[in-house]
Write a protein that binds this DNA or RNA. Structure first.
Length: 569
RNA sequence: CGGUGAUUAGCGCAGCUUGGUAGCGCACUUGGUUUGGGUCCAAGGGGUCGCAAGUUCGAAUCUUGCAUCACCGACCA
């Protein structure tokens, strides 16, 4: 490709709307352009990268035995009613009508369509297991699209689905998908980690997310500093503190704490360590037979944070997690939100393991502006249950039993999931088994955010000059950068010759044939992250040499012109 | 969805307080100059000042409404 025929579209200045480095560089290097919130046009350079990622994903999916298909982006709503997600999915699902006022959705994912397809196509256990995948545009009407293509509303996703008669078979495919994902991210040249993930409301036995490590990531990942353990913080178990709870030493006593609203204010007002306090959160419980929603109290040590996912999983707590209103708080605890405590509280009480290990703690007294000191479980409050409902924090013992927790940020680029029979059951997806009986299929699903990978790769591979693409996904393998080609026939001749040879050899090369000063060319190619620059100048032509510059290492070297092709073998 | 801020040329911004029909840098065009790291000089082209209504002789500027975009938050005990 010659730059004279190419839409280069590089920018010197960073558009003000771009917050994270990958978004800034994607705009400056001419990879994408914004159309509306969360919607992006892929320019030639960006599309080249996107296609390379796509192809690596495709190759490894095929190697794992999956068949590529392509499903429609527009899906009839009755499929979603059949699966139950028409009501469950919420406003992220974009709903629309055709000219006959028939309702449709823009597909945010394709479990419904594929389950329907397989239900129609398969009739015998002999056809199993079967894995299908597609690489396709998804639409999710995100609350807050941000960070460019990292969290767009329309994005490119690889979604794969596997179908099985038995759970053991699903586990086998799940493992082979896990391995395929590792091969994909290895080939992409990314620093990534598979981490244990929450299985969500769908249930199932296992789920892993694949995270690219980067400070700009939106997820917290908990690692062990002494083993391979890694889990999304939503999932990481906070284990109970070791040893017995200490015996009470103090009597329960009231202390006034006027105008103290938060736990931090309380700790500094009473001049105590925050981890000797507990905080009490009132949330909505599950609706009872009378149609009322009771209030449930969740109790945490003052320095800990509620893990909403864990809380939602409790059978007593309504999902999605909803905090009690001021009226409900007043009716339950007879005080404002800042003074609730477990002593004498008349509702279901669930105490985090760490909070349950405290003795002589400080808590609200269920009376405005009053707290208790010297509170103790059993003695002062005995009707409660204990559960893991907090986020792990740095330094916690790892749930794997080895080492302590370290927390890093990650960008979720892949998620694999043992679905079980949820969709197959809802959509009547079954085959005849060996015994000639109808048997509902068990499913797995496996997603990769193809467009998000492009942004994640930049987050991990850049410097002050621009992008430093991993070789496997660079838009071009090399660029020919001639010095003053307009003035030097020799330079032009050499550049054209190399361009011809490289093209014929199938090397993706960008020939910078603009009449620009060298500095402009260098700046553009470094911004775009071309891994190898072939710099042709009068300076080295007498010796029949050109200069090489490696974008990743910054190394410069000379090479004989007739040796250039050997670089690409 | 709540909060905050923004919207003036392709991009980055000034002008608004104190109304008088728009300006700077980059980019673009032309000519010259320069040529191994974003040269320099000159001359140009390009804007319904987000949209709508109002106040006024007159609105980018004041008022009201709307739209769009971005950021923060969605943990309050």
């Amino acid at each position: 490709m010659r730059t004279s025929q190419y839409l280069l579209s590089t920018l010197k200045e960073t558009p003000a709307s771009a917050e994270v480095i990958s978004h800034q560089l994607m705009l400056r290097a001419g990879l994408v352009r914004n159309l509306a919130s969360g919607l992006y046009t892929w320019l030639p350079t960006g599309l080249r990268v996107l296609k390379k990622v796509e192809n690596i994903v495709r190759e490894e999916m095929q190697r794992a035995g999956a068949n590529e298909i392509l499903m429609p982006m527009v899906q009839p709503s009755d499929l979603w009613e059949e699966s139950g997600r028409w009501d469950d999915y919420g406003p992220e699902l974009l709903r629309l009508h055709d000219r006959h006022q028939r309702p449709f959705v823009l597909g945010p994912t394709h479990e419904e369509v594929i389950t329907k397809l397989v239900a129609n196509e398969l009739s015998s256990y002999k056809q199993l297991p079967l894995s299908l995948f597609q690489i396709q545009t998804k639409f999710r009407d995100e609350i807050r699209p941000r960070f460019g293509v990292m969290r767009g509303r329309e994005f490119l996703m690889k979604d794969a689905y596997s179908f099985h008669l038995a759970h053991e078979c699903l586990e086998k495919t799940y493992q082979s998908m896990f391995d395929a994902y590792c091969r994909i991210f290895d080939r992409l040249g990314l620093d990534y980690r598979p981490v244990l993930a929450d299985t969500g409301s769908i249930g199932g036995d296992a789920s892993h997310e694949f995270h690219v490590l980067a400070d700009s990531g939106e997820d917290d990942i908990a690692f062990s500093d002494a083993s391979d353990f890694a889990a999304n913080i939503e999932k990481a178990e906070a284990i109970a503190p070791a040893g017995e709870r200490a015996q009470p030493k103090h009597e329960l006593a009231k202390v006034a704490a006027p105008n103290v609203k938060t736990i931090d204010e309380l700790a500094s007002y009473l001049n105590v360590d925050i981890n000797t306090t507990v905080k009490t959160l009132l949330v909505c419980g599950v609706e009872n037979e009378q149609g009322d929603t009771p209030v449930v109290a969740l109790i945490l040590r003052g320095d800990h944070q509620l893990n909403e996912i864990k809380a939602e999983h409790l059978p007593q707590v309504a999902s999605p997690l909803t905090f009690a209103t001021d009226e409900q708080i007043r009716a339950t605890a007879n005080c404002n939100a800042g003074s609730i405590g477990p002593v004498g509280l008349n509702c279901e009480i669930i105490v985090d393991r760490s909070a349950a290990h405290l003795s002589d703690f400080i808590c609200g007294a269920n009376e405005d502006d009053v707290h208790f000191t010297g509170a103790n479980w059993q003695r002062d409050s005995s009707k409660f249950s204990v559960a893991d409902i907090r986020n792990v924090v740095e330094g916690d013992p790892s749930p794997c039993g080895q080492g302590n927790i370290v927390i890093k940020r990650g960008i979720e680029v892949g998620h694999i999931f043992q679905l079980g029979t949820k969709y197959a059951q809802a959509m009547n997806c079954a085959v005849l088994n060996e015994g000639g009986k109808n048997q509902t299929l068990t499913m797995g699903c496996y997603g990769i955010g193809v467009s998000r990978i492009v942004a994640a790769a930049i987050e991990q591979n850049h410097d002050k000059y621009g992008i430093k693409w991993p070789k496997a996904i660079a838009p071009f393998q090399a660029a020919i950068v001639p010095m003053n080609m307009a003035k030097s026939a020799r330079v032009k001749e050499t550049a054209e010759l190399l361009y011809k040879q490289l093209n014929e050899a199938g090397i993706e090369v960008l020939f910078d044939d603009r009449k620009e000063r060298p500095g402009v060319m260098f700046a553009d190619h470094e911004l775009m992250g071309t891994p190898l620059l072939l710099i042709i100048g009068e300076r080295n032509l007498d010796a029949q040499q050109i200069e090489l510059k490696n974008r990743i290492t910054g190394e410069k070297s000379l090479i004989a012109i007739d040796q250039v092709m050997s670089l690409f073998n």
